[in-house]
Design a binder for these strands. Sequence first.
DNA 1: AAAGCGACCGAAAACCCTTTCGGGACTGTA
DNA 2: TACAGTCCCGAAAGGGTTTTCGGTCGCTTT
Lengths: 341, 341
Amino acid sequence: MPRTHGAGRVTTLSEVAEAAGVSLSTASKALNGRAQVAPATRARVQAAADRLSFTPNALARSLLEGKTGTVGLLTSDLEGRFVLPILMGAEDAFGAGQVNVFLCDARGDAIREQHHLKALLNRRVDGIIVVGRQTDPRPSLGQDLSVPVVYAYAPSDDPDDVSFTPDNVVGGRIVTQHLLDCGRTRIAHISGDPSYAAATDRVEGSQAALADAGLAPLGAPLFGAWSEQWGRDAAAQVFARHPDVDGIVCGSDQIARGVLETARDLGRSVPEDVAVVGYDDWQVLSTNSRPELTSVDANLQELGRTAARAIFAAIDGDPAPAGVERLPVKLVIRGSTIARR
Amino acid sequence: MPRTHGAGRVTTLSEVAEAAGVSLSTASKALNGRAQVAPATRARVQAAADRLSFTPNALARSLLEGKTGTVGLLTSDLEGRFVLPILMGAEDAFGAGQVNVFLCDARGDAIREQHHLKALLNRRVDGIIVVGRQTDPRPSLGQDLSVPVVYAYAPSDDPDDVSFTPDNVVGGRIVTQHLLDCGRTRIAHISGDPSYAAATDRVEGSQAALADAGLAPLGAPLFGAWSEQWGRDAAAQVFARHPDVDGIVCGSDQIARGVLETARDLGRSVPEDVAVVGYDDWQVLSTNSRPELTSVDANLQELGRTAARAIFAAIDGDPAPAGVERLPVKLVIRGSTIARR
DNA sequence: AAAGCGACCGAAAACCCTTTCGGGACTGTA
DNA sequence: TACAGTCCCGAAAGGGTTTTCGGTCGCTTT
């Protein structure tokens, strides 16, 4: 660590060289493990560097190499809880190497996004990951940037870009298939805001699973909000219209929590009378309910890692194929579909 | 934006100068609004810069100025939901200016933290904000760093450092005072993991409020986990031992959700029979329950902004006073303490 | 003893930008 | 016409590091 407090004064390599009685270049080679340096000299330089607590200036090095070892993470909305795991996954994948992450939150504001983008380019990041808060396509940053870009969660609307997003259609399918596997046949769907692709995609997968099994859904899917309140209200409707319902696919864990509560109020036991599944596996909701919720984990952290690896590869001149890659999700089975023991 | 795609080649100032038919220095002055440049010349340079989509290299500039306009955000655990709003607040305060944020997640691992710290210093950040996930004091990074450091949420254990943390004692006090103001007198406390300062601090404030009112708590505070499950179990105990309880202070919103559920099961209506308060105002829990939860908002985003401002000031040579500053929290009143209309 | 070779070190360029300072050209006045 | 003054522009240094290439010194071999 640099030695001085507060004031920006930091030891420089030439000071180390002087202290060790060698030239600048020798000091550099000694500290970087280059050959052409006598072991004794190397030790002397090393000692001097330690004594002065020398810290190489990464700026100067980057200036030379043309690579900064930094990546920009451009998020549209930090508040959204989906970006965090993605961000973690990316940070994780980078942290293993020597890459650091510039975090920029655009607040869903295009102007602010442009501003941040410019700042990132000024700082010569080696690549940019754009993380959106919905799975709906978002505007591309454009093709003529000096660094590679990948999109995570929210895919780019330009098919020439590289995007990664969770596969909501398959998610809806597998969670519905699970209900079928549990022997349920009268299955209703309660989803969230229909303006979200996440809502319609999941419904689409779910309906497909039913169709494959030769079953019809129990009424049209109900769309509303991504809230417990909506879950409670919609469940009441479902139970009223279809008293024989034995499975409910929910568009989110929040909705599922509401459904559970209404079922409880109406004296329907879960999972015996009716099985309920959530989506997203937001653990604070899914593992704290009674019974715990079967749900779909979108594996967002892995998605973040994938995006990071793609950026790595692109930086090394080996870009991923353009287009939207839909990453697998996984079913997490808990008590709301299978009775305990 | 730089013009070339993928490959790192980016326009440099000397290329702009050449294109405009002026010298390097003139180009610099023209683009930076310095005087000593004829308007016509300036326009010509500007045009050339636009045409080549020139982007100034922030690295070179930083090298010169000795300031990078970057700040390190060193968090111990991204997963913790407390760091996110703090991070947003900080990012917010910086975003207004020209500062960008390096995000580093140490995963609660001291080695990784040192590693990240070193990387941040190598990159010559102008300052560092350390964000912890608990309000318990954490080890200091030490005094002999070359840049100013402030601690947010988790204060440093070294009183010479600058720390900001929410005031949990006052939080416990005001939320209890609110119950008293609602006419409640038989008040129990269900808290979380007692190894957390957050648990004990809140209890301490709560007890103090009762003592000030000349009241004794209804039994010793119950400590357990920060989960709904514990809230359900503990509430059952409280109702069994103290059937006359009319107010329950919970250590977190999760616990409060559990308490609400048990109250519902036992036919105790909230808030008429018993008023319930949560803590943290985690809105996915507090505004989705029935009734909605009165809670304490720790104002974390403001805490992040405060930390950012403190770093700003310290960078400008005006450090905040050392020690732990406890920032105010605010009571959010909802239906779990006051019946709707 | 001379020549040759290997081991080691240092000078200098390069990266890209900002800023200072000196000088050139032009205008106006004596 | 000559000089003072003004207005622009350009040369050069500086910031910290890495890397290349040339040079020096000592040792070995004949």
